[in-house]
Nucleic acid binder design. Structure first.
Length: 289
DNA sequence: AGTCTATCCTGCCGGC
DNA sequence: TGCCGGCAGGATAGAC
């Protein structure tokens, strides 16, 4: 669901329908979704603005707004930052068509409607004048060139935290969530409880490669779906869940070694592990002794 | 500095 | 069948 690949998929499918469109109407069905602003204030800030850019940063979708015209010239009019959190979705609809269920905010465009749908109401659809500052706390983008194996090894060594907790920390590395962290750790054969400063350079390299490979392939497959919960804005489920090696497979055999996968709690999150493939350093030492 | 807890919410599943 | 506790992909604030 909404981790980096699902957010990227959402953006790609929605972008053609919203880029260059002008916001003609606003409907706020759940006020907390738009943050601290009142509905009236939010509306006045976005009404009449044109969506000039639509891009992703980590798990955020950022829509840059402009005002003006080709004749008078355009000027920046702030941004909308969208975070899907647990259950948020973006849907494109037709004007006048029936509104989807669990709708929290809708932007009526000069052509079509953008709906923000969110069963659990954790998601946010917020206007800001300072998008860059609002996103400044985020760590590097895992598919960018600044995220290298060398950087990862150094950054892990500078901290002493449970590996999984650190990878989930968006200020450390931005975009991973519970599913893809479990998958990446298994592929790199690292136990989620490993202290981050005990990850060797070789293992950091494997982890770096696993993160990039898994995220890249998940984007190619348009993310992961289960229980019919997450679907792309086109209504199709993603297909990456078929590739899961550990997530949701507790009690089933590890596809690498055959022993039963377990589920444990790490950083207060359900965590899927193969205890044979992913061994804690402490155990490695004990085994050698 | 790092870890844990509570909080924001609804839906769904399993157990009784 | 119906009720109820527990759990779910995320992020943050505050306590220890």
């Amino acid at each position: 669901m909404p981790e980096l690949p699902e957010v990227e998929t959402t953006l790609r499918l929605v972008r053609p329908g919203i880029l260059g469109r002008t916001i003609r109407g606003v409907e706020v069905c759940w006020p907390r979704t738009i943050g601290g602003l009142g509905e009236h204030e939010f509306s006045s800030l976005v009404l009449g603005a044109r969506i000039a850019q639509a891009r992703r940063r980590a798990k955020y979708i950022r829509l840059d707004l402009e005002r003006g015209s080709a004749r008078t010239g355009y000027e920046a009019a702030g941004s909308i930052l969208i975070h899907l959190r647990m259950s948020g979705r973006l849907l494109l609809g037709r004007r006048g068509a029936a509104a989807p269920g669990w709708r929290r905010v809708s932007l009526e465009l000069d052509r079509g409607v953008l709906h923000f749908v969110d069963v659990r109401k954790f998601g946010r659809f917020v206007w800001t004048a300072t998008p860059a500052e609002d996103l400044a706390h985020l760590g590097p983008e895992p598919l960018s060139h600044e995220f290298t194996a060398e950087w990862l090894h150094g950054a892990l060594a500078r901290r002493r935290r449970q590996l999984k907790a650190l990878l989930l920390d968006q200020s450390f590395l931005a975009g991973l969530g519970n599913i893809y962290v479990d998958e990446a750790l298994h592929e790199a054969r690292l136990h989620p409880l490993t202290p981050s400063d005990r990850v060797s350079k070789a293992r950091a390299r494997e982890l770096h490669q696993a993160i990039q490979r898994i995220l890249g392939e998940a984007i190619e497959r348009e993310g992961s779906s289960f229980d019919g919960f997450y679907v792309t804005p086109e209504g199709n489920p993603g297909a990456y869940q078929d590739q899961f090696q550990v997530y949701g497979r507790e009690g089933l055999p590890c596809r690498s070694c055959g022993i039963r996968l377990i589920k444990m709690l790490v950083a207060q999150r359900g965590t899927h592990v193969c205890t044979r493939c992913q061994v804690l350093p402490r155990k490695l030492l004990a085994r050698k002794a």
